[in-house]
Design a protein around this nucleic acid. Sequence first.
DNA 1: AATGAATGAGGATTCATTCAT
DNA 2: TATGAATGAATCCTCATTCAT
Lengths: 222, 222, 222, 222
Amino acid sequence: MPTLRRAVRYEQKQQRRQAILDVAWEMAQHQPHAAITMNDVADRAGLAKGTIYLYFRTKEELLLAVLEQQLRAWFDEVDVQLQQAQDSHAGSITHVAQIICASLEARPAMARLLAILHSVLEQNIELEAAVRFKQMLLKHLTRTGALLEACLSFLQPGQGAHVFLQAQALIIGLQHLADPSPIVRQALAEPGMDIFEVDFAREFATTFAALLYGIEAKGSNE
Amino acid sequence: MPTLRRAVRYEQKQQRRQAILDVAWEMAQHQPHAAITMNDVADRAGLAKGTIYLYFRTKEELLLAVLEQQLRAWFDEVDVQLQQAQDSHAGSITHVAQIICASLEARPAMARLLAILHSVLEQNIELEAAVRFKQMLLKHLTRTGALLEACLSFLQPGQGAHVFLQAQALIIGLQHLADPSPIVRQALAEPGMDIFEVDFAREFATTFAALLYGIEAKGSNE
Amino acid sequence: MPTLRRAVRYEQKQQRRQAILDVAWEMAQHQPHAAITMNDVADRAGLAKGTIYLYFRTKEELLLAVLEQQLRAWFDEVDVQLQQAQDSHAGSITHVAQIICASLEARPAMARLLAILHSVLEQNIELEAAVRFKQMLLKHLTRTGALLEACLSFLQPGQGAHVFLQAQALIIGLQHLADPSPIVRQALAEPGMDIFEVDFAREFATTFAALLYGIEAKGSNE
Amino acid sequence: MPTLRRAVRYEQKQQRRQAILDVAWEMAQHQPHAAITMNDVADRAGLAKGTIYLYFRTKEELLLAVLEQQLRAWFDEVDVQLQQAQDSHAGSITHVAQIICASLEARPAMARLLAILHSVLEQNIELEAAVRFKQMLLKHLTRTGALLEACLSFLQPGQGAHVFLQAQALIIGLQHLADPSPIVRQALAEPGMDIFEVDFAREFATTFAALLYGIEAKGSNE
DNA sequence: AATGAATGAGGATTCATTCAT
DNA sequence: TATGAATGAATCCTCATTCAT
């Protein structure tokens, strides 16, 4: 329930906005996005349906904002870890892969949102929201990419961001493979199907490390 | 349009089934799956709505069957190419990556279907259809994986299929990145956003090749 | 047609709800329930389809509410009549049967709804609606049953409600017999079939009276 | 599975028709009529869907024929019992009511079919089937009615059939009351709702007996 | 700013029945 | 007579979004 009756000042409005985001994030962690209704979000936030729309233009913008917040936190954490890795001269490929992998493993719901970013969250939004999100992504991609370059000396200037984008593709693809529908999960219980049972974190670590080794070996990624 | 009035014999039924698949595939090439309605499929196939359901239990099973057919053709083509590459001792990493990349580039709609395989096509289907699809995938993964191993001598026995699964994840992820919504495309037109403009085929070739180099360099993928 | 644009206050909402009920009742009087579509109800009420569902969860709940309203009015009328009969010491069995019969005769559509109460109206409803309806019925059964006992001195305490339930069974059964399908009506035109031509009101009066005489004669109904 | 490939002779056709009826009756005993599909009937009879339609014009005619057969058997049994009752001078009202009640209790599925006779089974049939059914009913009503008159001396000539029709109405109505939907059953679990928990057989015996006592007491039923 | 009543598009699916073979 | 492929009508309900209050 909101503490304030009317959010008049900017700060109050931000608080309310955050309260809505918190509720949506809470829900996103426990159910697929299709099961999340704006009605539920409003109810759980102690607000009226229409009020949600004062803060987010569409359901997709709301969930995109949720993902944005999670991504920010994720990037920040990765940044700290990469910084530490660099300081301690522990910037090996495996270590870097482990850092990213571990941070992802701690955020399964974020990976799930990321997996529907293009097919759902970016579908029913305004230009403004799209630009904002992409600029956020760009900023972090650049910053974290730079840190990556600092950790992995074989990366050329500017290549870090690109590698991170490749990582993003990997996350999305592996998340899809690792999260089958109930009926498919059942099908995969048949003998011989083991290959399809993908452990997201493990697979990501392996594959991303291999990718980095490849870049290192070949000297270029273009 | 169906050539036969009543599909009585098995062969005729297969023809009709194929006719429906053709229509659906045609539509899948020109519009997003959400825009495809069973009504339209029936109309374009010159059949009644109920008739479609005689051959496919749900819309998802129909589209899954479409994808299955495309994947079969794709795997077969890749197999032929890999075979040739192997025969001609041209089995370098770059060459292999090029083969797969080129075959994908010729099938944009297939890649688009693959990108929604887990989130859509595998959602409203019967166990039987799921098993059938996964077994098809398994068969081709195994066969093409073996050919891959023959081409790339650094791959260990059984690793080929796994590499192909990694390729699948890459395809899905990159397809998502490369196929933004109209509004996002507009956002990406802003200066500085170039990094997000992903050319699917080019990016796949680069990344997949890097992945293979990494596997080669590191000796293992586990 | 609704007189109010937006039903904000409780009273306004009740008015709107009533407007919908009125439309549904109007339709129920002129066509079988299967011919009533929610689309039609909405159109005739000058509302959008979704608005109907704001007031009634399913088509069955809507029609159940219609029946509920009719039953209330019916019970109320019967109560008044029984009261009068009792006051005027005219509480003979025939008189009581006549009262109920006449009130039913004035409500053919209600009897028709009552005849599908169990097979249709109570099938696709929520527990809440079921409880509400049954409690309404219980209340009236008790009240009217008590009046019946006052009119017919041979009834034991508490027997009135039970007798009314027997009357309900009779109404349902006779309504079925008296309302044949067109084709059956045609069949009954053949000579010798006269026995099947049931005049609902007349038959109810006769049979219900007989039932009461039997209870009077035997002293008990258990 | 049918023993004969092609039913050519009249006798063979009757056998096949009976086989279908048996299957339908079997199904009617275990599931509500809406759950019975012609597909299932055909499958279980080892016949093709179309073949069913060679013997019964519609689903309703099939189920009507099932009911007809059951009614025949029921009337026959009741006839035997009434005959015995008459012979043994045991033709009291209670005894007669018990006979009919017991025979009904042994046929719950028949009572269920009877309850939907007018609302369903007689709705989508041809004139011929309607006439045939009603004539069957008339014949038995007359015969059993006569036996009833023999048992219950207070009945006037011709009144027996009419009493049986009243019994039919009672059966239909009480069957509806006694067979609530799952959700209503749940609602009736609440305290105070006991009055609605109708035991079909018991209630029928009581009410029918009361009806007969009333007729006896009043001397007439018209 | 907040409310919540009103909107209405939107489409898959079943199954009794027919009829070509 | 038997088959089973083909038909197609028929409609409920959800839920994101809007906008009057």
